[in-house]
């Protein structure tokens, strides 16, 4: 009973926010709706007792990826009129892509693999069952090679991203903290000995 209320509540939020992602005029609002839809889907995963995946979704996508996404979107100077100008022109291409996406999704999550009669009742697990442990065991034994390949691809992507962002023509004034720490007094300060100047303009007032 409570589970059903929670499911329909978050399912409704998920559908509504997913619709808002594509229909909102302001890109910031669209990005925030995407955050909300991640949240709602994480709640539905929690209902399926997949607590590790649910929290990882929030931690990775909501906590890190979408923050950077918002960071970029907020900095852009987006002209909404220009953005909506090509709507009619791009509509056929958009519809084609949408149909292709729906068809491919339907092939994967269709009745062949995920028929509703096989998934009517959720298998309940014991209280000691740890989703994290089960996932870790499967990932590091059964799917070890796939896991390592994914890790290697990510490493290559990181190196590529860093090498792309390194500025080869050295125009930025990067400071080296080690140099700053090891600066001595002699490097910065020069003491000059000179005669005191005798000024005629500022005379001490006579008492």
């Amino acid at each position: 009973m409570i589970e059903q209320i929670v499911f329909y509540f978050f399912g409704g939020i998920l559908l509504l926010s997913a619709a808002m992602v594509v229909s909102m005029r302001n890109p910031i609002h669209a990005a925030l709706s995407l955050v909300l839809s991640f949240f709602a889907s994480a709640a539905i995963w929690l209902l399926l007792q997949a607590e590790f995946l649910a929290i990882a979704l929030i931690l990775v996508y909501v906590g890190a990826v979408m923050v950077l996404f918002l960071f970029i979107v907020m900095m852009l100077d987006i002209n909404l009129v220009a953005l909506r100008a090509g709507f009619a022109r791009f509509l056929p291409a958009g519809i084609t892509i949408a149909v292709l996406l729906v068809a491919s999704m339907g092939l994967v999550v269709g009745a062949d693999y995920f028929a509703s009669d096989t998934y009517m009742a959720m298998p309940t697990v014991a209280a000691e069952y740890s989703n994290t442990k089960a996932l870790g065991l499967t990932l590091y034994t059964e799917y070890l090679y796939q896991f390592e390949i994914a890790g290697a691809i990510l490493l290559v992507a990181i190196i590529a991203a860093i090498s792309l962002s390194i500025n080869k023509t050295k125009i930025n004034k990067t400071k080296n903290p080690e140099d700053q720490v090891f600066v001595k007094k002699q490097d910065r300060l020069r003491i000059i000995k000179m005669q005191p100047e005798s000024s005629t303009r500022h005379k001490e007032p006579k008492a």
Binding site: I28, L32, V35, E51, F52, I55, A56, I58, L59, V62, G63, A64, V67, L70, F71, M74, S130, N131, T132
Partner: peptide, 25 residues
């Protein structure tokens, strides 16, 4: 008393930034 308590805490402390960036924008 959930199994993934540590992850839950980490996930929620990472959400605090939304208030700040939404307020700023």
């Amino acid at each position: 008393d959930i199994n993934a308590g540590l992850l839950y805490v980490l996930a929620l402390t990472s959400l605090a930034v939304y208030g700040v960036i939404i307020a700023g924008w």
